[in-house]
Design a protein around this nucleic acid. Structure first.
Lengths: 213, 213
DNA sequence: GTCTATACTGGGATAGAC
DNA sequence: GTCTATCCCAGTATAGAC
């Protein structure tokens, strides 16, 4: 049990650094954010940051890990389960949007710039690739089954990604209660846009709800 | 007629700077892009940039102007015209996506970071606000007419924005011929997602086509 | 219109005291 | 674990020759 007052303080500060850094990345982008600015927001001096993280990139890496890890787990669980592709995609979009809204750090700045191309962030880049491949695979299943309008799976994946991410730009500064309907709203919007047979939407929604429970 | 060989060279270099800067902003973001990098891509030395643009921000400002000016004109023309809101929205999305695909500079890096908040870019920020207000107004018309699923107009506007912008992330490095169907594909996707009556989509598409001609 | 040389600033990271 | 002091580099922008 390596926990004690000193450890608690340290991890609390680490947490505040992650929060402040995420907020700053969201506002100014990674390159536009200075370690001095992060430190000021936390209430410590700039060099003190480096007691908690070896580099500025390491802060970003940790934020990415905390987002990507659960995201990968979610999509893999859904892909491994049963149900028709359209229902599983609906369930995935709902779960992903809900997770983004519940993410305790501001995720807006995490994926914008191509900071991921830096070799130091290769693991995170790889995780993101895997995640995208899983989503694309799920879309491809629906296309192969003839459930969706014919389209390029990667193109559709990007549209879905754009919409799920968009919700966090809305979320900033809004009360949670106003956003409770977002997961279902976005999943519904996506599926209505995709489904070859529009009348199918209610059945898909019902099956997706069953998959959740 | 202020044109001559020297002027041609100068404006040609200006053009190459805009292209190179846009590509760099897309890859690294505004803050992640150095004037040295832009100059190297153009094939001149870093200080020579400042003969063509007073500051690095001025390069971004010009790129924004070239995108926002026509975009505002497009949405205003559509809003001033007739037709039911759903058809006009379809026509707008098609026109906007087509324009983005035809934009001669890489637009991916132009709106990501909140560089627009800098006072030096206040005019561009104002233009963007106006543009958003027009789109939101068009969406609100459709909502008021009962043509769309009930939703927040600003939320819908952001979803539309995310999808139209997403296309330029796809466009990078792809042959134009593969993208010819994108405007119609995205407009169709958006309208299917929005329409309260899914069976309406063909009528909307037909009226949108008439509006174009 | 582009060059070299350079001023000046801000930012990431280290050293070492407390 | 945080501090002060400081190093070092990258980046924007200017001066002035050609």
């Amino acid at each position: 049990m390596p926990a004690g007052p000193r450890t608690d303080d340290a991890s609390a500060t680490r947490e505040r650094i992650l929060k402040a850094a995420a907020a700053a990345f969201a506002r100014r982008g990674f390159h536009g954010t200075s370690t001095r600015g992060i430190a000021a927001a936390v209430g410590i001096r700039q060099p003190s940051l480096f007691h908690h993280f070896p580099t500025k990139q390491a802060i970003l890496a940790e934020l990415l890990d905390r987002d990507l890890g659960p995201a990968l787990e979610r999509i893999r669980r859904i892909r491994a389960g049963g149900g028709r592709p359209a229902a599983r995609l609906h369930a995935y979009v709902e779960a992903d949007v809900a997770a983004l809204l519940g993410f305790p750090y501001d995720a807006r700045g995490l994926y914008d710039e191509s900071v991921l191309e830096d070799p130091a962030l290769a693991p995170q880049r790889a995780a993101q690739r895997e995640f995208h491949a899983e989503v694309r695979g799920l879309v491809a299943e629906g296309l192969d089954a003839g459930e969706f309008h014919p389209a390029d799976a990667e193109f559709v994946r990007q549209l879905i990604h754009a919409m799920t991410v968009e919700v966090i730009f809305q979320a900033a500064g809004q009360p949670r209660s106003d956003l409770a309907d977002r997961p279902a709203a976005i999943a519904g919007f996506v599926l209505r846009g995709l489904l070859a047979d529009p009348g199918d939407i209610d059945a898909v929604r019902a099956e997706a709800a069953a998959l959740k429970g």
